[in-house]
Simulated scan of single mutants.
Amino acid sequence: MTPQKMGVVITTYNQPKWLKNVLFGYEAQRHNNFTVIIADDGSGQPTREVIEFFQARGKLTIQHIWHEDKGFQKCQILNKAIAQTDCDYLIFTDGDCIPEPDFISIHQSLAEPGYFLSGGYVKLTTSVSDAITEADIASGVIFNIDWLKKAGQPTNHKLWKLIKNKTIKALLNAITPTKATWNGMNSSTWTSDIKACNGFNEDMQYGGLDRELGERLYNHGLKGKQVRYSVNCLHLDHPRAYDNPETWKKNYAIRNDVKRTGRFWAENGIIKSTPQSH
């Protein structure tokens, strides 16, 4: 079964420079039948101006889902975006991740009932992130390994994700020891399955909140498909204001409880209700 209506959910918070480059990446997609859903956790006017700039260009269908800035509420804004969409299949990524030109089409072609896709990303250095231009994104040259090396990106095995040979990509997916987990930079599944788990757990703060959804999707009966070499994005580097050990500790406790109990329903999710009513 092929998804009929694709949506890409992009989370953002006051990073207009990076969001602009990301949206140039979606303008450059070879497959153009999809909706961009920007889940905005309270950004100010500069972000709104970036979104209006792309809406005026008319190349993308954009929905801007915004709420007031009350601190880190990524799960809340994601749930609002999920609740409002009419797309039957959703890709989740971040406003600092530039998609490769076939990003949407590969997710669509690999989508399969009963599965979620766990894609890959290549984390760029700060200097390479800053050097990328609109023209570089439009041409797709930034996904060329040699171009990245010349721009100053360190040479290591992580660049293998950008190898073009599909046979080698499939082999690397098969032999990688990394489990197929839900990561917020590059994962996708059916909207109905996310809603069946009541979306994201709004008790989760910064640190592993995406993984927790993946663990509940597993509990719901889905399997993860490892495609980290098949579909990728470039992760732009910037500081992270919300990273602290206390929230990680709290989030690990929630995730451990999900594993221990085998539950899939997020009590504090899209719908505010107890598991007993479902």
Rank of each mutant, 00 (worst) to 15 (best):
K150V: 13
T189R: 08
R48T: 08
T191L: 09
F72P: 00
L110C: 06
N156F: 03
A241P: 00
F264H: 15
I194S: 03
V122A: 04
I77R: 02
A241C: 01
L124R: 10
L171F: 12
N244W: 04
V22E: 02
Y252Q: 05
D203P: 10
S188T: 06
H220M: 11
Q84R: 14
R240F: 09
P101T: 02
S129D: 12
L19P: 07
W66V: 03
N198A: 04
F34Y: 12
I98E: 00
I271T: 13
K259Q: 12
V231Y: 00
D237L: 02
G58A: 15
C197V: 05
S192P: 00
R57T: 09
A196R: 09
L217G: 11
D102A: 06
D94A: 10
I51E: 03
T191D: 04
T191A: 10
N156K: 03
Y242H: 03
M204T: 08
I104E: 00
H235F: 00
Q153L: 08
L19F: 12
L23V: 05
W18V: 02
S277Q: 06
P16F: 08
I145D: 11
N198V: 08
L19A: 08
A151R: 15
E267P: 03
K166F: 09
V227D: 01
T2H: 07
S188E: 06
Y89W: 13
I106F: 10
L148M: 03
V227W: 01
Y242F: 05
G221N: 05
S43T: 12
G184K: 00
S230Y: 00
W66H: 12
G208H: 05
Y115H: 13
A28F: 02
G214N: 01
F54S: 08
D96Q: 10
G207T: 01
V22F: 09
I271Y: 12
T191G: 06
I82V: 15
G114R: 08
S187K: 03
W190N: 05
E68F: 13
V36K: 00
E52G: 04
G119D: 02
K20V: 07
K166E: 15
L60H: 02
F92Q: 01
K169S: 08
D86E: 14
C233V: 05
Y89L: 08
S277F: 09
S127V: 10
G114K: 01
